[in-house]
Nucleic acid binder design. Structure first.
Lengths: 223, 223
DNA sequence: AATTTGTATATTGGATCCAATATAAAGTCT
DNA sequence: AGACTTTATATTGGATCCAATATACAAATT
């Protein structure tokens, strides 16, 4: 026997493929707020039937990435200014506690990974990479806490915010400030100072909030 | 014209009906951990086809209430001891911040509602009501914060925990302790002391964690 | 020209069917 | 009796179809 057997249950379902792809498109800002998700069109694009598309949309709706209206289909969910404010506060609270839990457990390997992501973030020139690297930097630190439910909430909130953050980072000095703050956070992690790392994480998220809200207000004033 | 027009878009889809019903059955402990969700059986029970059932299951999976396995169907998700520990910590952090945000904004009407739920909780004799009243008590306080994303996380965590909390409350002095703690939390809210209410909320959730984990350990030792 | 009515087309919600995978039961071999 | 093989049945994943609702466009009326 000269082949490698593969567990068929590991193959991705059509639903999962469509879900992953739509989620990514939303996160990357490739789909606009309010843009409809036409089931038939998506089904054709993926060469499948509408059933997996509907299941993918049901999942996206549960994540708050799309809003479905009975008989009218789903659209990419927009976020109000008030909601931004709230989501950042929630992020700050959950991420700082994730950090507090993680630091005592963090390994040299994770710190090395974080350092590597930090360097990549600092030198990245493609906006498409920024939010992915930002997420990788933060999450590889939090993962030391072995807290999947924290990570689920955190990643869910990143999913909601990424496309807006990327737009903002493109147009402000956000990258430089974030890089400096990441360096300080990482240093606190390396020093094993959980409380300091948690406080820095909280402040970092709140700085990002202030920056994004400022950007959105200016954007609104110029349009 | 002598009739009251109803917006057809307000009617519940089959998917939503099935989803609500399955979610409730899981929350209430009417379905056991590991119990399979048979699509055809559920479809027959609701007199619909499997399509809405599959969409409902996709949504439940996203909420962490069921786990689906490719080609093998979905089962009610169990929670490990480690995960309980984590979920309570996450609850404590998010709920205490929700409380901190809510107290400065809380209305007399909400306080009256909370007082009413508190009394109902204290006098309830049916286990089926306990967790529902507990949730109503807490959430009507948090709702003053106008923070739907906080509430979504909080309710999602309640959904995960309710069936275990109910079992525990039935067999321990948890109701008496919770009632006392609710009274103290409510008094802090009535006094407008946000920081104190937040700290009490955090401690209350951590007490509930200790109690549930203790119950589960004893339950495990006797089986 | 503006408004209303009628017709055509697009899209959603879900029923039914078929193929693929999993599980159970029956039959065969040791 | 236990292990293995074959057959039957259960269940899932998704394709196709049909009916209901929404939207767009054309025609008629004011």
């Amino acid at each position: 026997m000269n082949f490698k057997a593969v567990n068929v249950a590991q193959s991705k379902s059509a639903t999962e493929i469509v879900f992953d792809s739509l989620r990514q498109a939303i996160i990357m800002g490739e789909m606009e707020d309010g843009e409809p998700l036409r089931q038939e069109e998506i089904a054709k694009a993926f060469n499948t039937s509408r059933i997996p598309v509907r299941e993918a949309i049901a999942r996206l709706e549960q994540l708050g990435l799309v809003e479905a209206r009975r008989y009218k289909g789903a659209v990419v969910a927009a976020i109000s200014i008030e909601e931004f404010d709230e989501i950042f506060d929630l992020r700050a609270v959950v991420e700082s506690d994730a950090m507090r839990r993680a630091v005592p457990l963090i390994t040299k390997a994770s710190l090395a990974d974080a350092r590597s992501y930090h360097v990549s973030f600092a030198t990245a020139t493609e906006p498409e990479e920024w939010t992915a690297l930002n997420r990788k930097f933060h999450c590889c630190l939090y993962e030391a806490a072995n807290s999947p439910n924290y990570l689920k909430v955190i990643n869910g909130l990143f999913d909601r915010l990424d496309r807006y953050l990327r737009a903002q980072l493109s147009l402000t000095d956000g990258m430089e400030r974030a890089t400096r703050e990441h360096e300080i956070i990482l240093a606190a992690c390396e020093a094993g100072d959980a409380e300091h790392a948690a406080a820095l994480t909280y402040d970092h998220v709140q700085d990002a909030k202030a920056s994004l809200l400022n950007y959105l207000k200016q954007k609104r004033e110029t349009s």
